[in-house]
């Protein structure tokens, strides 16, 4: 496995979930901690400083937002929230409060492994300055030159579209909520104007995707936001 023994804290009150997650994650090469309640989770987060916290949003004693906000400030733990479908708003709140990613129950273990890997990789490069250019398949983005190419052809983007694409590319692999994009591109005071984001993403897709209904890079996370994939 690629990671060198990172510690993962699994927070879930269901024994059945813990029973398969622990052996799976251990087999992936992580050391695994378990917590059944929010309180226990917070205690372990400060004593063991895990790299990743897999946080179920349906805990009996505290809700996810509370736990994310109560994490010790020094903690570098990245949080993946897990919740049932239909609770999109909970996920969005958690993501906006600082959670790094989310999974919908039931989730595939391969997907979980991929998310954890992506998080840990990003964690490793978090302190480095953002790269000046990206390359995703035949899509290349030159941040400094403001040039985007699809294959050999240059794609003409408006400043807004470029700003969005740059932000998404910087967070490639990670989910970005509508609210986060809005704040990044239009500023703090643009809350409630999520349809701007949708319309510009729509236009951006027309420009950078061969088939906008089946995007290769700019994926929709229904009810939550977008995820840029390599």
């Amino acid at each position: 496995m690629t990671s060198i023994s990172a510690t993962i804290l699994v927070v879930d009150d269901e024994a059945a979930i813990l029973r398969f997650l622990k052996p799976f994650l251990q087999a992936e090469g992580y050391s695994v901690l378990e917590a059944r309640t929010g309180r226990e989770a917070l205690a372990m987060a400060s004593s063991h400083e895990p790299e990743v916290i897999l946080l179920d949003l349906g805990l009996p004693d505290m809700d996810g937002e509370e736990i994310i906000q109560a994490l010790p400030p020094w903690s570098r733990a990245r949080v993946i929230v897990v919740s049932a479908r239909g609770r999109e708003q909970d996920k969005v709140s958690a993501l906006d409060l600082g959670a790094s990613d989310y999974l919908t129950k039931p989730f595939s273990l391969a997907e979980l492994a991929a998310r954890i890997r992506a998080l840990l990789r990003r964690g490793a490069t978090a302190d480095a300055p953002p790269p000046a250019s990206y390359r995703f398949g035949d899509l290349s983005i030159d941040i400094e030159a403001h040039v985007v190419r699809l294959g050999d052809e240059e794609v003409h983007l408006t400043p807004t579209e470029f700003k969005m694409l740059a932000f998404l590319a910087r967070h490639a692999g990670k989910v970005v909520t509508h609210g986060q994009l809005l704040k990044e591109v239009w500023g703090k005071h643009s809350q409630g104007q999520e349809h701007y984001v949708r319309i510009h993403v729509h236009k951006l897709r027309q420009k950078i995707e061969h088939d906008p209904a089946r995007p290769r890079h700019l994926h929709t996370e229904t009810g939550v936001g977008y995820r840029f994939k390599e």
């Binding site: 949708r198 993403v201 906008p212 209904a213 089946r214 995007p215």
Partner: peptide, 13 residues
């Protein structure tokens, strides 16, 4: 909310 159609089609596919 006004949503571009290909968003939902895309995520369903």
């Amino acid at each position: 909310k006004p949503v571009p159609l290909e968003e939902v089609i895309g995520s369903s596919l």
